[in-house]
């Protein structure tokens, strides 16, 4: 009899534990779902706004589904200065990408493969740049650029953006190269390659996906940057500078369409680089 009682209480206990687990699991899933919609819903609403006609955008009350009207986007594209700004943003971002990866990759390789005097100092200098609000440096540079004729040029802007992106490029590429066993290079040397050949034939093919990811990262840094762009460009505005400076004058639908255009490449690019997000940050935060 007592045995049976024990069995019953044990069963109840298991049942209770089971219920507790279920509650936890439910709580877990619903809070994850809540956080997902917290991120996605505002983006969805921006898309709804950008894909609605001007009357709907400025109308009342708003519908929560898009009418898939291209009028707003078309209006935005034809709005004075937008196309130029879009082009400028692309050019500046590509410049930034080329400069930061072009300069950062050799430095990353040096950090990964060589022991040399001053290595730690160099690494500290790289890390130090992140302890400063870098866009601020656009202020003195605006003055300097006037003196050297780089004022209001996309190249000048990309130099500032590259200063933002270069430290990341160095740290990311160095972690990439560290992830490629040095023996692979040594094997190539022994089998008849010089350093350059071994780098091109063995290291590059293996590092390429990661290098692409860090190039994309540099692109996004430039694409999104507002402050330096607004300070340094006047006639050659990038999209961010254009939107900030025409805030009060441009109609709401232009802002929303501009917002959508701004976030599209970022979202796509993040999807492309998502595999490297961690290796990038994991090491970049050491």
């Amino acid at each position: 009899m007592s045995n049976l009682n024990q069995d019953v209480s044990l069963e109840q206990e298991i049942q209770a534990a089971d219920n507790k687990n279920k509650v936890w699991k439910w709580l877990f899933i619903s809070s994850a779902a809540f956080m997902i919609s917290w991120i996605l819903f505002p983006i969805y609403l921006l898309i709804v706004s950008a894909l609605s006609s001007a009357e709907v955008v400025n109308g009342w009350p708003k519908a929560f589904v898009p009418e898939f009207d291209m009028e707003t986007l078309q209006f935005f594209m034809n709005y004075y200065g937008v196309l130029g700004a879009l082009k400028n943003s692309l050019i500046a971002a590509v410049f930034t990408m080329v400069i930061s990866i072009g300069l950062g990759t050799p430095a990353g390789y040096a950090l990964a493969r060589f022991e040399f005097r001053g290595k730690e100092t160099f690494r500290m200098m790289i890390l130090l740049t992140r302890a400063f609000p870098m866009p601020l440096l656009a202020l003195p540079l605006a003055v300097i650029f006037i003196n050297v004729g780089l004022d209001d040029t996309l190249f000048g802007l990309s130099l500032v953006h590259a200063a933002l992106a270069l430290p990341f490029a160095v740290l990311i590429t160095s972690s990439l190269f560290l992830g490629i066993p040095v023996e692979l290079e040594e094997a190539a040397w022994v089998l008849g390659c010089n350093r350059w050949q071994a780098f091109m034939k063995v290291v590059m093919p293996l590092a390429l996906p990661g290098l692409t990811a860090s190039a994309v990262f540099a692109f996004v840094i430039s694409w999104n940057e507002v402050f330096a762009a607004a300070v340094l460009t006047i006639n050659n505005q990038t999209l961010t500078a254009f939107l900030v400076q025409s805030l009060s004058s441009s109609p709401a639908e232009v802002k929303f369409a501009g917002g959508l255009i701004l976030i599209m490449p970022a979202i796509l690019f993040l999807f492309v680089v998502r595999k490297y997000l961690f290796s990038m940050w994991g090491i970049a935060n050491r």
Partner: peptide, 10 residues
């Protein structure tokens, strides 16, 4: 990947 400008617009 979203700038503070775009976040503000959203």
């Amino acid at each position: 990947g979203i700038s503070d400008l775009a976040a503000g617009i959203i």
